[in-house]
Design a binder for these strands. Sequence first.
DNA 1: GTTAGCACTCGGTAGACTCGAGTGCCAGAG
DNA 2: CTCTGGCACTCGAGTCTACCGAGTGCTAAC
Lengths: 361, 361
Amino acid sequence: MGSPVGSDMVGTNVDGGSHLDERKAAILRAVVTEYIETAQPVGSQRVAQAPEVSVSSATVRNDMSTLEREGYLVQPHTSAGRIPTDKGYRFFVDSLGGPGRLDPSQRHRVSQFFARAHGELEQMLDDTSKLLSGLTDYAAVVVGPNHESAAVRSVQLVGLTAHLGLLVVVLSDGAVEKRSIELRDDVGEARLAAATAHLSAHLVGRSLHERSSSRSQPTALPPTGDSGTDGVVADAVIALAGLAADRQEEMEQVYVGGASRMAAAFDAVETVRSVLSILEQQYVVVTLLRDVIDRGLSVAIGKEHGVLPLAECSVVVAPYVSEGQPAGTIGVLGPTRMNYPQALTAVAVVSQRLGRHFDDS
Amino acid sequence: MGSPVGSDMVGTNVDGGSHLDERKAAILRAVVTEYIETAQPVGSQRVAQAPEVSVSSATVRNDMSTLEREGYLVQPHTSAGRIPTDKGYRFFVDSLGGPGRLDPSQRHRVSQFFARAHGELEQMLDDTSKLLSGLTDYAAVVVGPNHESAAVRSVQLVGLTAHLGLLVVVLSDGAVEKRSIELRDDVGEARLAAATAHLSAHLVGRSLHERSSSRSQPTALPPTGDSGTDGVVADAVIALAGLAADRQEEMEQVYVGGASRMAAAFDAVETVRSVLSILEQQYVVVTLLRDVIDRGLSVAIGKEHGVLPLAECSVVVAPYVSEGQPAGTIGVLGPTRMNYPQALTAVAVVSQRLGRHFDDS
DNA sequence: GTTAGCACTCGGTAGACTCGAGTGCCAGAG
DNA sequence: CTCTGGCACTCGAGTCTACCGAGTGCTAAC
């Protein structure tokens, strides 16, 4: 609540203009706050009435004019109030100390959620995205934990039909992966069992990853002495390699909750459509989140992230940490004029609780 | 293309008014067709120009007036053209003989899709929903196959940590279900193995369903002689029962594709929001589809289905059949003024191909 | 440096008017 | 009895004008 700029999170600074004196900063903050609430351009009079600004509207006008020249505000048209630019929001966000406290009822809601949390991983993550969306009233995304180092706990080949088998792998993080395999005519239950035993002997306890250094030519296992069994084993090893690769890419499953709330955030139906369409492209969403995290930000505002159709959106993200390591990411997607303080705290609280939840289970 | 009403698919007929003479039927069809295309109220002049109507606009006016009195059309306001009511659409849909042929490029697209279809069930179904959405430009839903009678092919207990185990069940339809189980201190690898063996001996080959007649008190297995093992087995049996129940409810996972396209279908942003919000509630969607199917319909128009927020939407559904039995459902959700002929054929073709795909694999 | 005062701008709203697509009805032709 | 051409009428949508008022920028005084 004191220093003008948090120097650790400086985003886009076109010029040296990020040094605002305290009064201008207060005025800017007031404009942003007001605009977030009303979605209407805010004028000097309104700002002058704000408790943290104790100067006349004329002075505010002068300062707002300066703020506009420096790129923090824009006027939709002459003789209208002013609206924050991305840069204005950025200053606002940076000047928030950090996530605040959740209000009691929401706090309770989160506690309830994690107390009752049940079911398997996927369900849990999906529900979490809905929780976060409900807390913020924006769309929420949750990226699943990527236990890269997960060890194989069990490998099993199961026959489904005469020509179709299923390779089932259980990993130490509780994930179960499967892959169907074509079986040749000469493979019966006996050979499946033999292959299962052979695979188990060589793979259990090791990381799925270390077996798949090269996908096209996975390391073969030593022969069993029975060529029919060896054939199945070889197929299984190939499937395993593919599985490992898929897991790397696709394991980063993203769960999107409350996408419909984006419709309430914009009034141009075309904007809604394009935003929703982006949210349907899991790959884009994951990339976006990773990008933001990689750049060390916790908020990406408007055009700061590269995704053009989301130019009118901001993203608030946080990694969640399980067993001391960053495991996945959660985030909130809303309009640029979103309620940043609330979103920041909601994301912070949920990410923390989520990590703890995984550690406890 | 000849008889006025397909008597097999009669929907809501308020009164005996479903007997339209051929000319009125042609006029009604023309109005619907035109309105589907332009989304504008259509006037008598336009209809009179349609090739299948060869009378003057005055005559058309008289007939349209009658059609309005009988509830097939409405005027948004005096001195505007007319718009079909739900009843009007119903007549139109019923008077279509049945699904037509897909245009060649779409046909090709479908073939490509199923030729390249790969990956596991979930991915496949999700992709199918995207395909169907792409074909029709509306939102598409796919409900997964419910192999109620699926037999257990493999049961396995795997230890994850000292106190956490995972029950993994492979079913004959290729589904893999899992459930975590708490382990007591005295359970080690040996007892897990023993329990796995015991469970396998009693459950493999049977249906998951037949073991779960009463969820609260599942049938216990005979004792093994070791009380520690018996404890684990009992826990596993309980987990199995829960799993079977969940599978009944939740197995009917629904995959929604192209929800964003609903935004293009309406221009009231509030409508979009409420429709999307419904689509996010899987349970409602599944119920809706089942309802429509159960009533023997393949199209539900506007208020015909009970879901109020979808009053401006229609649903086109078709079950898909695998191994001679209805396995699941696919459907398209669009605005009431959707392109029914196209949607009907797309749904018919995809459902057929999907069933065949499962049979082949 | 701050403030009060003032002329000016311009988006939004309301009312008047026009235009034209579309209707309903009637009288006459087939 | 059915169909059609003609005609008066309706009313939404678009255009134009006037006006209001929130908000600005500037200047002069404190």
